[in-house]
């Protein structure tokens, strides 16, 4: 039984790190800071969740602590990227020319 869970956990683990790698790729390919934050937050959040879940499947007695780390990341990751995105916008970060509309700049003035 545990042998099956080990294999399953290993597969979940690898799928999680694949998402981490995709996020890293996105961070390098995206043209401006806002798109980079998007790529950086989402994929790493799911990637970490899957990694922790995979380890949890291999070590069921650790699952409480892994769950705690996962929940913590789930709540803090989006918060820090929100704060960073706002800071970047207020600091007048360059937006890619493909950007079609910016309602935030319309309402608050555009420092860039």
């Amino acid at each position: 039984m545990q042998a099956m869970l080990d294999i399953l956990g290993g597969l979940v683990l690898v799928s999680g790190t694949v998402f981490l790698l995709l996020g890293a790729l996105g961070l390098n390919r995206m043209p401006d800071i806002f798109n980079r934050i998007q790529a950086g937050t989402k994929t790493t959040t799911l990637g970490t969740m899957l990694t922790l879940a995979g380890i949890g499947l291999m070590q069921p007695d650790w699952s409480m602590k892994l769950l705690l780390i996962g929940l913590f990341m789930l709540f803090t990751n989006p918060l820090s990227s929100q704060v960073l995105a706002r800071a970047a916008h207020r600091g007048g970060a360059r937006k890619t020319p493909e950007t079609e509309v910016d309602r935030y700049a319309e309402d608050h003035g555009d420092p860039s």
Binding site: F19, L22, L25, G26, R29, M30, P31, D32, F34, N35, Q38, A39, K42, T43, H89, K95, T96, E98, T99, E100, V101, D102, R103, Y104, A105, D107
Partner: peptide, 18 residues
Amino acid sequence: LARIVLEPDLPINPGIVK
């Protein structure tokens, strides 16, 4: 997002909405 990142021409049309 994975599909966007893996596509060679990076198909994005970003915008900030309210």
